[in-house]
Design a protein around this nucleic acid. Structure first.
Length: 483
RNA sequence: CGAGGUGUAGCGCAGUUUGGUAGCGCACAUGGUUUGGGACCAUGGGGCCGGAGGUUCGAAUCCUCUCACCUCGACCA
C-alpha cells in the first residue's frame, strides 16, 4: 500500500487545532495518567509516577541540604481545628471533603480530609514547642491533599493531588521572611535546572494570596497556549496561625512569645507544566534530568545475528550512568517504536542495526530537534552524556524564548486587551495597587495578576501610570490568563 | 440548580427512525512472511447493549422510572 508516511503521531490532536484536546491526548496516550471511578480523581500510572519521583527526589535533596526534615501528619483533621483560623476556613471551606461516619456510626465531630495541613500541624507544634532553643522548626511532609474541585484536569487541577508542604517556625519575622524567600528560590532553582521551565517570581496581590497568609510568593511559568501556571508558592504566615493555635515559647528574654510561621508547597501540577511547556505535536518532550528513560535503545532487524547482543551490551555500558531501556519487543517495526518513544518524550533514541555494527557505530536521535547523529561505539557514553546536557540546556532556552515572544507590555486597557487576544501570554503593566483596578482588568481581559516582581526585576513602564486608572503606580506586575 | 447530549467488547463507534441470530475499526492472542520512520496475510478470544420495571410470541431498538458521565450556563474562587 502506498500509505503516506508522515512524522506526525496519529493519535494526538495537533496543538494548534485544539490545545486542551492535545493535552488530554498526550497524557492518556503516553500512559501518564488515567481517570479513576471517582470524578476528579486521577490514577497516576507508572510512567507518570516515575517522573514525579524524579522531581520529588530533586526537591527533597535540596530541602534536606537546607536543614529540613521530613515528617508525616494524619489525613483527617477535626472540624474544630480547621475552623480556628478565620481567614483560612473561609478560603477552604467550600472545597473540603468531610468524613461523617466511622465504623458504621455517625461521628460526634465530623472530620475534614486535609485540604492542606497548617491547622493540624500547628495544633501539634503548640504541644511540642517550649523554648527558643528549639527554634527554628524546619519540617516538611510529602503527602496528598483533597480539594473538592468542580472542574478538573489531570495534573493541573484534580480533587486529590500529591505535593509537599513545608511548615517552619522562627523566632523573628526577619528569619521567617528569609525562609520564605529561600524556599521560593529553591523552587525556582530546581524548576529551571531540572524541569527546564523558566519562571517569573514575585509576590501575590492580596486578592490572590493564600487564605491566612501575611504574604504569598509564587513562581509562574508560561504554557504553549499563552496561559500561566502557578507552579509553586511560599507563604509568610506571620503569627496568624501561631496565635490562633496558641503556639507559645519562652523567648531569649524569658517571656512568652508567638513564633513566626512559613509554609510552602509544590505539587504534581509541575508535571502538567512540563508537558505544556516542552511538549509538541508528536507528544511529550521530557527534560533529561526528569526523564524516567533517558536513552531508549531500538534494535533494528533484531532477528539478525548479533543485533540484540550488541543492543544489550550498549545498554549495559550506558546503564552505569544513565536510565536506559532496550525495546526488544517482537512484532513491532522499528518505525512503530520510533514513534512510540518519541510520543513518550524520551530525550535520546539509540538505533543499532546490522549496518551500524558493521561500521562500529550507532545512531543517536534527539527528541528535541529530531537530528540524527552517527556515533562510534567506542565513544558512546561520552556522546550520550554531552547530548543529554545539550538537550537539557536547549529545552530551557527554547522555553525562555517562547516566554519572551509571548510577553508584552501595555500602557492602557485597550492595548492590554489587544495584546492578550492577539498574542496570549504575560502582559507586563503598571498597577496602582487598588483592588478595584485588579477586578476591572480581570473582568475586561480575563487576566489576573500572576505576580508582582521583586525590586531587582521591577521596571517603570509608561511613566509609572496604572494600566487601568492612569493614576501613579509604584509597581509593575505580570498579568496573564491562568490555569 | 437550568438547558442540551451520550451510555453497545479494553478504546473509538455503527445498529435504535421501521422490534426479528450482537456488528465494524483499532487494540489483544496464535502461526507465518517482514523489520533503517507507525508492515502484511490467515486464524482466534472477548458483550447481562448503564440499571430496574413494563408492552410484546420476541426488546439494544418502543414506554416508564432511575443512575452515571460530557458540554454550556448558573453558583463558586
Amino acid at each position: 500500500m502506498g500509505k503516506k508516511q508522515t512524522n506526525q503521531v496519529k493519535e494526538i490532536t495537533p496543538m494548534a487545532v485544539d490545545f486542551p484536546q492535545w493535552y488530554t491526548d498526550v497524557i492518556s496516550k503516553t500512559e501518564l495518567v488515567d481517570y479513576s471511578p471517582v470524578k476528579g480523581f486521577m490514577v497516576i500510572r507508572p510512567y507518570g509516577y516515575a517522573i514525579w519521583e524524579l522531581i520529588q527526589g530533586a526537591y527533597d535533596k535540596r530541602f534536606k541540604e537546607t536543614g529540613h526534615e521530613n515528617m508525616y501528619f494524619p489525613l483527617l483533621i477535626p472540624e474544630s481545628l480547621l475552623t480556628k483560623e478565620a481567614e483560612h476556613v473561609e478560603g477552604f471551606a467550600p472545597e473540603v471533603a468531610w468524613v461523617t461516619h466511622g465504623g458504621g456510626k455517625e461521628l460526634a465531630e465530623r472530620l475534614a480530609v486535609r485540604p492542606t495541613s497548617e491547622t493540624i500541624i500547628c495544633s501539634m507544634y503548640s504541644k511540642w514547642l517550649n523554648s527558643y532553643r528549639q527554634l527554628p522548626y524546619l519540617y516538611n511532609q510529602w503527602c496528598s491533599v483533597v480539594r473538592w474541585e468542580k472542574t478538573t484536569r489531570p495534573f493541573l487541577r484534580t480533587s486529590e493531588f500529591l505535593w509537599q508542604e513545608g511548615h517552619t517556625l522562627h523566632e523573628t519575622p526577619e528569619e521567617a521572611q528569609e525562609e520564605t524567600m529561600k524556599m521560593l528560590g529553591i523552587y525556582r532553582e530546581i524548576a529551571e535546572s531540572h524541569l527546564a521551565m523558566p519562571m517569573v517570581v514575585g509576590r501575590k496581590s492580596d486578592k490572590e494570596k493564600f487564605a491566612g497568609a501575611d504574604a504569598t510568593y509564587t513562581m509562574e511559568a508560561l504554557m504553549h497556549d499563552g496561559q500561566a501556571l502557578q507552579s509553586g508558592t511560599s507563604h509568610n504566615l506571620g503569627q496568624h496561625f501561631t496565635k490562633a493555635f496558641e503556639i507559645t515559647y519562652l523567648d531569649r528574654n524569658n517571656e512568652q512569645s508567638f513564633p513566626y510561621h512559613t509554609s510552602w508547597g509544590v505539587s504534581t501540577r509541575l508535571i502538567g507544566g512540563v508537558i505544556m511547556v516542552h511538549g509538541d505535536d508528536n507528544g511529550l518532550v521530557l527534560p533529561p534530568k526528569i526523564a524516567p528513560i533517558q536513552v531508549v535503545v531500538i534494535p533494528v532487524a533484531q532477528h539478525k545475528e548479533g543485533v540484540l547482543d550488541k543492543a544489550w551490551e550498549i545498554s549495559k555500558t550506558l546503564g552505569k550512568d544513565f536510565r536506559v531501556k532496550v525495546d526488544d519487543v517482537e512484532g513491532y517495526s522499528p518505525g512503530w517504536k520510533f514513534n512510540q518513544w518519541e510520543m513518550k518524550g524520551v530525550p535520546i533514541r539509540l538505533e543499532i542495526g546490522p549496518r551500524d555494527i558493521e561500521n562500529g557505530q550507532c545512531v543517536l536521535a534527539r527528541r528535541d530537534t529530531g537530528e540524527k547523529i552517527p556515533v562510534s561505539l567506542d565513544n558512546v557514553s561520552q556522546a550520550v552524556a554531552d547530548l543529554l546536557t545539550e538537550i537539557q540546556a536547549n529545552l530551557f532556552d527554547k522555553a525562555l524564548k517562547m516566554r519572551e515572544e509571548k510577553t508584552s507590555t501595555a500602557a492602557n486597557i485597550d492595548e492590554f486587551k489587544k495584546n492578550i487576544t492577539e498574542n496570549p501570554g504575560f502582559v507586563k503593566a503598571m498597577w496602582c495597587g487598588e483592588r478595584s483596578c485588579e477586578d476591572q482588568i480581570k473582568e475586561d481581559t480575563g487576566a489576573s495578576i500572576r505576580c508582582i516582581p521583586f525590586d531587582d526585576e521591577q521596571e517603570v513602564l509608561y511613566e509609572g501610570k496604572c494600566v487601568c486608572c492612569g493614576k501613579p503606580a509604584q509597581k509593575m506586575a505580570y498579568f496573564a490568563r491562568a490555569y
